[in-house]
Design a protein around this nucleic acid. Structure first.
Lengths: 331, 331
DNA sequence: TTGTAGGCGTTATCAG
DNA sequence: CTGATAACGCCTACAA
């Protein structure tokens, strides 16, 4: 079926295409009668504006690019919702790409986005905090605003929001120490900038609370068997508390520990990170470090919208995380 | 910073824009020397092609529109991943919108997508199976392929994949009956076409296994307090087995039941639907009806790619669900 | 208040 | 093999 254009509408209405354009864009100086007529013709036809042509003419696509390593990572779906929802409310469409975690690939996606003439970019996750991405931003999109969730790049057009996860994890250690746990181990999945900081926080905590012992950190895969194996190794080695780098790992840990007949929190305490929706309904419920992912995405949206509307925004905002205490550490 | 165009490249290379275009698009009849020269100039500059202009000229945006009621619904994130990932692999970009569940609003999004000149549409969830959406498809995108996950519209350009959830839920009832449970109740969240079918399946099962009793269905909110309240009402009313319309509800149910001191599956059996990743790691692990969401999205992608490449595809595919038995029903 | 004409950056046709 | 030139559909001075 042939697309119908403003010229078709113009012809039927007995006016010029320019007038149709004016009506569509709500220009003021159009005679009411003319306006009504054009609007009537439009509503009687199946005309829809061609945003490709409009974008080319106005040099404005009203498209936002969203980059995420893997959209399936549960802790980020809320963020994606907020972005797509809020930007939609402001007349933008959102293009979403899964980049994976290879910096070179991530950089390619930035170039790809630039071919689509996006008007802003959002990158979700600390994994985008690397030199390749930074260079690509400098090279391909130096003039369009970039928002980063939980990551930071020191560039004029980049706006970052991060949580102090290092301090947050240190506080987790403090909490466990105060409850009498003596043998605390940290299990991390793949080492992103964010996860590296969390580990530092863990070391800070151990050094502070147990000056004589050295911090014990295990790096584990994310699959159920991986996590179970790591967990059992640690428990059989006399650990009485485990901090996992993510709720998803912790939930698997919970499952393994409970299945093995050990009691939580009497035998082992468990803490996760992200305060995901499942931490509240697991058995036992999971104490979790809320790293403010929700507030982070809201903040990034605000910054970006502000800049897009010609305003300004802070280049870095640091949020304070908060431990949500539940049954897995005792009440 | 001014965008650099093929004219700029052409000037520097001492050729015409047409030749640059030929090089970019890998045309054959270009003298190797010329080609090299142009490519060198391009790589020395920050030139990227303007896809908006290209789309206008070629009448092809290579953009796919994805519609989902709420991107946060956990059972659909895998599907979204597959779509964005697969379409990217085939050179398409994906525009994602949250439509909500109001049919009139959903229809508006179809019009919106048509203004972006998308080349295919994916709708995820049975909630899009309604007349308003059907009319909007007919009116605004009668000629572009539409893929539906778990929903069906009887139109020439719509390709659907659904699971036989009705039969699946009936089988769940049979399973519980065979294990000796006598008082089975069904808890559903909001009534979508899919959820309505599940309820029918439940009634089928009850009528078949317990001809003398009438099916007991409860419609509940999705929030934790809602689900807990519904669950306790039912249990206090002598139910010995509950089928929830979604794993997410069932997981909350599990939490409430366990917290109240009742034993699963001795006192109460529980079955969920979706076979989500958490059903395998909950305590106890959750028996769940796998409604083949994964296979559904793969199938829809295949159909759409086939049609986009000029091929054909079945308009309706029905997948058989499968019960994954875990601890919440006894082994 | 309205129409004409040029331009947005590419692609594609047609000569040469 | 390469260069003009005319679309693609819309917007926007500039004129009228």
């Amino acid at each position: 079926m042939e697309d119908i254009t403003i010229y078709d509408i113009a012809k039927k209405a007995g006016v010029s295409a320019a007038t149709v354009s004016r009506v569509i864009n709500n220009y003021e100086h159009v005679r009411p009668v003319t306006r009504e007529k054009v609007l009537r013709i439009i509503s009687e036809s199946n005309f829809v504006i061609n945003n490709t042509a409009r974008s080319l003419s106005t040099q404005s696509t009203r498209i936002i690019g969203i980059l995420i390593a893997d959209i399936r990572t549960t802790q980020h779906t809320d963020a994606i919702y907020h972005f797509t929802h809020e930007f939609y409310n402001h007349g933008y469409a959102c293009l979403i790409y899964n980049t994976g975690s290879d910096p070179a690939k991530q950089a390619e996606f930035i170039q790809l986005l630039s071919t689509r003439k996006i008007e802003a970019v959002v990158m979700i996750g600390s994994i985008f905090q690397n030199d390749e991405v930074s260079d690509a931003v400098k090279k391909y999109i130096p003039d369009i605003p970039v928002g980063m969730c939980n990551g930071f790049l020191d560039l004029e057009n980049v706006y970052s929001v991060v949580a102090d996860e290092r301090g947050g994890v240190r506080d987790c250690v403090r909490l466990l120490a105060s409850k009498g746990y003596r043998n605390i181990v940290y299990i991390s999945n793949n080492i992103t900038p964010s996860n590296a900081l969390k580990i530092e926080g863990f070391k800070d905590g151990i050094r502070e609370c147990f000056p004589s012992s050295s911090p014990s950190v295990v790096v584990s895969g994310e699959e159920i068997p991986d996590v179970c194996r790591s967990t059992f190794e640690i428990i059989n080695n006399d650990a009485d508390a485990i901090i996992y780098s993510e709720d998803n790992l912790a939930l698997i840990g919970l499952h393994c520990i409970v299945s093995s007949g050990r009691r939580i929190p009497e035998d082992v305490a468990v803490i996760g990170i992200n305060n995901s929706r499942y931490s509240g309904i697991s058995n036992p419920s999971l104490t979790s470090l809320d790293n403010m992912l929700q507030a982070t995405s809201f903040n990034v949206v605000d910054k970006l919208l502000s800049v897009l509307q010609g305003g300004s925004a802070d280049h870095l905002t640091v949020l304070e995380p908060e431990i949500v205490k539940r049954d897995s550490t005792g009440r």
